[in-house]
């Protein structure tokens, strides 16, 4: 069964599909332009040695987000669950 989870809580290696971009305003629009929109495939690649930000593979590019923003994006993980 598929359960929505915040992107920020996904361990490295998770592959999933974006369900909702729950941010607001300009931040939301920016992240949408970068490909964080419902339906996008996403992979959690690696964390900065300091723990934050995290790098994601989305629509052909690696994009790093801080946990604060990633926590508002929910995904359904495909593997490991």
């Amino acid at each position: 069964m598929a359960i929505e989870k915040p992107l920020s809580e996904m361990p490295i290696g998770t592959v999933g599909t974006v369900i909702e971009n729950g941010l607001t305003g300009l931040t939301k629009r920016r992240l949408m332009d970068l490909g964080f929109i419902p339906g996008s495939k996403i992979e959690v690649l690696r964390k900065s040695p300091a723990g934050d930000p995290t790098a994601y593979y989305v629509r052909g590019t690696i994009i790093a987000l801080r946990n604060n923003e990633a926590s508002h994006i929910s995904i359904i993980p495909h593997n490991k669950f």
């Binding site: 920016r30 992240l31 690696i62 994009i63 790093a64 801080r66």
Partner: peptide, 10 residues
């Protein structure tokens, strides 16, 4: 407050 940070790793 800190603004949004996004960074592309080319």
């Amino acid at each position: 407050v800190p603004s949004t940070f996004t960074l592309e790793l080319p």
